[in-house]
Design a protein around this nucleic acid. Structure first.
Lengths: 330, 330
DNA sequence: GCGCTTTAATAACGCGCGTTAGTTGGTGGT
DNA sequence: ACCACCAACTAACGCGCGTTATTAAAGCGC
């Protein structure tokens, strides 16, 4: 920077003013041009670290996830990254790998780097408890919430997701809709079932509990569940299956095809999660609901930016809709 | 740091010596303990940025990928991250999203943060050309290579992957092995075919070119290709299919099942890529080869660390084996 | 010509740390 | 009694920048 100043025949301060577009600083165009030319000529690049030190503003946000591997975390990162970029901020990403020690270590490193805010994301919707150190800095939870309800969080709207799935099938004329759910105790399963039942009732149908079977998140579990639903005695088998995730839809597909039934003509299927690698390549392609991970990442940074700027949040618990991704299985 | 020094009754220098375990500094245990106690008591955390500035060593490596979304990039990140951690380094991750402008901007930011090395990773094995600015800092290519062959790179060993796949099927007694390949012009397709043919020849079988059909990386393309192979006139249809990726294996599965054939009894299948969401949930689970993304990320940081330390590389072009992931389709 | 305001610029301090060149007090040897 | 030596520390500088207080020159009305 001193070299640039010398080269342009001005002081270092003036260079700083130009670089930062300092409001109130009167820099004639001619001087500004000379400085910018010098920067170009010398290939000068400001030192972000020194800048942060002097301005007492690191420009970092931290992002802790359980697993970097896996499409969900990646989407959160994408959303958060792009949003952070517009504020000229950078994201410090670390994976806890489910190990509390590693998580604490990552957090320590982040605090040493003076992150101005922390995003804490999980791969599945649930309650979490954060390490103590997280209280030192503004924190937003993504896809999870703290049991005490003290921290702001951004969550998928499971209820409207379940509602939307059932509604899509009702609109297609189905009245007996089997629901192969996730483990019944987790928030996703509870919320989606609530939405599913509400849609049925709105259509004048009384939910039949025997049509809701847990598939425990695996293709095998869903296969078994689908067999049970499709082989119901009395010939009142469902004409549509709503599966709690796309993996389970794979199992359901197998059960349906095995019986010589066709998708969607004989049995329609709706999944959840919109995992491209499954939904996009099943045959026929799977109509499913997307978890809005990218939007959640974006919104999380949004909230963090407000928090870091000292502004209060308008909503401390934000829910984001799960959009229906229309393909060919309904 | 000054507070800690005052609290412990020593100078700031002594605190620095303790924090950095400075070799040659004689610090009595008693003094050291007092300092560590003070750090604890005051909740002192070193400022990583200031440290980098003073030591002229940022501790950052940059990692640029095309897409953060997607399992491949995530694995590279995991490998690189964990390896970097052991050197007390951090990874600055950015996605180019295939946009040269965004890529250049990301690189600029990284250089402003004074990264000491750059990892450039692609999602599929191919040639790349880097922006000019990348020459300012040691660079290692991951899963790609530069056309000029100037930069060090770490690549998957496609040839041994193809060899290993064919070999596995030969060992299982198959002699007519169909190969649904990727787009024939890309390095992965070329290398794997070479390995496939070598394995056949070693087994005394002359490769039959009509058994190799491109599936163009899609399930649909592979379905068509598989139909062609399975419906060959003359009853000499292959008893095994080697697919250039797992998505194509999905298409092949459909073609096989449609004909009432069983996997692996009537037709064995080997995939490539080891995409958990596909390979692990197909029924039966898919035996496939893994692209060693995590290992490539690790090795990339390895090489970068040497480069950044000023040491020459022993090998400028490293290839890493693709391990066979045994499941139930052979 | 004088005072006053605006424009254009600068010198100097501090951000939090690593590092070098010292200083101080004590011990052993002759 | 003198010097050499070592253990245990410290003062002071600089890393690259943002920022504040200050100055010199130019413009303006009378």
């Amino acid at each position: 920077m001193s070299d640039v100043a010398r080269h342009a025949g001005v002081s270092r301060t003036t260079v700083s003013f130009v670089l930062n577009d300092r409001p109130g600083a009167a820099i004639p165009d001619e001087t500004r041009r000379r400085i910018l030319d010098a920067i170009d000529e010398l290939g000068y690049r400001p030192n972000a670290g020194a800048r942060a030190l002097a301005a007492n503003r690191s420009g970092w946000f931290g992002l802790i996830t359980e697993i970097v591997t896996g499409p969900f975390a990646a989407e959160v990162i994408t959303g958060a990254q792009s949003r952070a970029w517009t504020d000229r901020r950078f994201l410090l990403i670390a994976a806890s790998e489910g190990d509390p020690a590693q998580e604490a270590a990552a957090l320590d490193q982040m605090l040493e780097h003076r992150v101005e805010g922390l995003l804490y994301a999980t791969t599945w919707h649930r309650a979490v408890t954060l390490p103590e150190a997280a209280r030192e800095v503004p924190t937003v939870l993504v896809n999870c919430y703290d049991a005490e309800g003290e921290l702001p969080c951004v969550l998928p709207d499971e209820v409207s997701g379940g509602y939307r799935a059932a509604r899509r099938l009702l609109d297609a004329g189905h009245t007996r809709i089997g629901f192969i759910n996730l483990d019944p105790v987790i928030p996703a399963a509870i919320g989606r079932r609530e939405g599913y039942e509400r849609a049925l009732r709105e259509a004048g149908i009384t939910p039949d509990p025997s049509l809701v079977i847990p598939g425990y998140a695996t293709a095998d579990g869903a296969y078994t569940a689908a067999c049970e639903l499709l082989d119901r005695p009395g010939g009142d088998r469902p004409t549509a299956l709503f599966c709690g995730n796309d993996r389970m839809a794979m199992g359901a597909y197998d059960a349906i095809k095995e019986r010589g039934l066709r998708i969607p003509h004989d049995v329609a299927v709706v999944g959840f999660d919109n995992q491209e690698l499954i939904a996009g390549y099943l045959r026929p392609k799977l109509t499913t609901l997307a978890l809005p991970f990218e939007a959640m990442g974006t919104k999380g940074v949004d909230m963090l930016a407000d928090l870091a700027a000292g502004q209060p949040l308008d909503t401390r618990r934000v829910t984001i809709d799960c959009p229906l991704i229309e393909r060919s299985s309904v």
